[in-house]
């Protein structure tokens, strides 16, 4: 008879006990997001910060701009091109890390068990190094008087240094380098679980090497591919240090553009609105990605 009430009080106790965690979660995770969302619908302050007045100006300025003289409204091409560049570079980074990461993960997974830890350690070493230092190291390699150009000129392949630094290519090289481990590790986990007998089975059942890759290996390691792609794509989209150091002032990505609004631009509402847009883009791409991949699964 007392069992139901006992269960109920257990449930209430459960909630009470998890209150500290819930409060922390609300304050630490949702709090800052709510502040960002709130700032995006306020009026910009005179120098920085916000005035506590409701305004759509921040969101308006994400897509449009007003002429200083006659107040005519036009599309903010610069903002759009920054968004587009960010998405483009992030997709390219994801693809590059995938094509470099799959053979790497495969290589490690096919080593004897005793040496795999060593190879994985090599992959993770960059993680223990400061991002800024790694980015400057890349800069040292690709700048006009850097290692790459010097080597190419010494070997007589080129007579003039190739301008790589401060281009999209430089940003791409930097991001691919920085995010490669994030692709390799989930791919390794997937390839490590892969039953290599299945390759023999496919080969026995008249599949060519290409068909084995496409019809057997890739579909089975797909969870690893999805995890790696998400882990690379999302931080790429919000990258700040790499485009700042390797892309120079002109080749901005969303991260730099947002920072600009909170710094020199002194437009916090626009910065907050851009941040919210970035978050939405990430969420939408996550949903699309999982939808697309689960539909592929049913196609077989």
């Amino acid at each position: 008879m007392s069992k139901p009430s006992g269960q109920r009080s257990k449930g209430v106790n459960g909630w009470l006990l998890s209150t500290p965690a819930l409060v922390l979660l609300l304050l630490a995770a949702s709090g800052p997001l709510l502040i960002v969302a709130a700032y995006s619908v306020m009026e910009k302050g005179d120098y920085s910060g916000v005035r506590w007045v409701l305004s759509g100006e921040g969101w308006f300025r994400v897509l449009f701009e007003r002429d200083i003289f006659d107040q005519t409204v036009s599309l903010a091409d610069a903002n759009l091109s920054i968004f587009w560049r960010s998405v483009k570079l992030s997709i390219a980074t994801t693809l590059i890390t995938f094509f470099l990461g799959l053979p790497t993960a495969w290589f490690i997974a096919t080593r004897p068990a005793s040496s795999r830890a060593f190879w994985l350690f090599l992959i993770t070493i960059p993680f223990w190094t400061n991002l800024l230092i790694r980015t400057f190291a890349i800069m040292e390699v690709i700048r006009n008087q850097g290692i790459l150009n010097t080597a190419l000129m010494k070997s007589g392949l080129i007579s003039e240094p190739i301008q790589i630094l401060y281009t999209d290519t430089a940003v791409l090289i930097g991001m691919a380098y920085v995010y490669l481990p994030l692709m390799v590790l989930p791919l390794y986990a997937a390839v490590d679980r892969f039953d290599f007998k299945l390759i023999e089975a496919g080969y026995d059942l008249y599949a060519s090497r290409w068909q084995i890759l496409r019809r057997v290996i890739l579909p089975i390691i797909k969870p690893g591919i999805i995890a790696g792609s998400i882990l690379v794509f999302i931080p790429s989209l919000g990258a700040y240090v790499t485009p700042r150091v390797l892309g120079g002032g002109k080749n901005m990505m969303i991260g730099n553009f947002i920072e600009l609004q909170f710094g020199q631009g002194q437009n916090w509402p626009l910065g907050a609105a851009l941040s919210t847009v970035l978050l939405l883009v990430v969420l939408v791409s996550l949903v699309v990605y999982t939808r697309v991949s689960s539909r592929d699964n049913q196609d077989g």
Binding site: Y203, L205, Y206, S208, I220, G300
Partner: peptide, 21 residues
Amino acid sequence: PPNARPVNTVFQSYALFPHLT
């Protein structure tokens, strides 16, 4: 090569494709 031989194998571990029906 195996994929050009009219010979098929039943593997000890079966080696069925887990992603296919």
